[in-house]
Structure formats: C-alpha cells, structure tokens
Amino acid sequence: MRKPSVLSAYPMDELSGIICEFVEQGKEVVFTAKGHSMRPLLRSDKDQVILKACNPDALGDGEVILYRRDSGGYVIHRIVSRNKNGTYNLMGDSQTQLERGIRPNQILAVACGFIIKNREIASSGKKYTRYVSFWSRSKTIRRLYIFLFYGFMRLRYLAAAAFRKIFPKK
C-alpha cells in the first residue's frame, strides 16, 4: 500500500460541493487558492482563503467572494461595485476587466480572512483594508504589476521551453 497522498491544493470546482456544505452549516472553510487572478494578494497553490456564509444581498465593495459562473466554474474575485438592479461587478486583483452582472444567487460565500505565508489576516484588519483601498484605486500600479508579473511568467515559460529543447530528456 502506498503512502497516503496529502494534497494541499485541490481544484476548486471539485471541492465546491464540500465548501458549500460546510459554509451552509455555519463553519468557516479554509481553502488553498489556485490561479493568478487574485495576485498580489493570493499566490496560487500557496495562500489560503477563509470562507464563511454571507447574505448575498448585503455585500460591500472590496469584499472577496466565492461565486459560481453561469458556465459552471467557481471563482474567487473581489466586488468592485454594485448595480442598481442588485447585481455585482467583480474583478480579480491582477485583472483590469470587470465581470459584470453577477447575481446574488450566484454568490456562495464571502472571505472573512486569508492565510498568507502561514499568517492569518482578518478581512477587517487594518493592513488588509489599506491594501484593498490602495489596490482598488491604483489603476496605473495595477497595470504595471500585471505587465511585470505576466511578463516574468512568460519569460520563465520561454526559458523552460528553451531549456527542454537544448537539453531534451533521454
């Protein structure tokens, strides 16, 4: 029998049922973030989001939520604004395009905290609220960050591809 495999990050789409089950029971759920859309706040496969139940009709700008897209995918992004018809406009921290018209019935949970580099940060904490306020307003810095981050990722990918070409596995 092999050693049991311990996983720190499991695809959110597959865990969504479990997350919803326990959030509905009133528990907080700690979940490892996957993907780069919430950088620089959350690093993929390294940092965690702490989710809890919420009233989807009473969420404020800046809150990070778990929602289900009509296409079926589960996503964690930040509320940027609310429309008159009650829907929300969302965006990841490393994105510049709004995702408009997310209905309250698509929202499953809200983030009440994060675990970043093994340190727990409450979403009501001073440092975090300062980050949200700064990051929401600093469009130029956000664009520069996105340019640098994705530029670096692309360079890393190209370097790895070149390395594989020069030193193919035998």
């Binding site: 311990v6 996983l7 720190s8 865990l15 326990f22 907080e28 700690v30």
Partner: peptide, 9 residues
C-alpha cells in the same frame, strides 16, 4: 472551521 489545506486522498 474546516481546514482543506490537508486533504488525504
């Protein structure tokens, strides 16, 4: 709290 940081497959 449910901690999904350590999931055993």
């Amino acid at each position: 709290r449910v901690d999904l940081r350590q999931i055993l497959r």
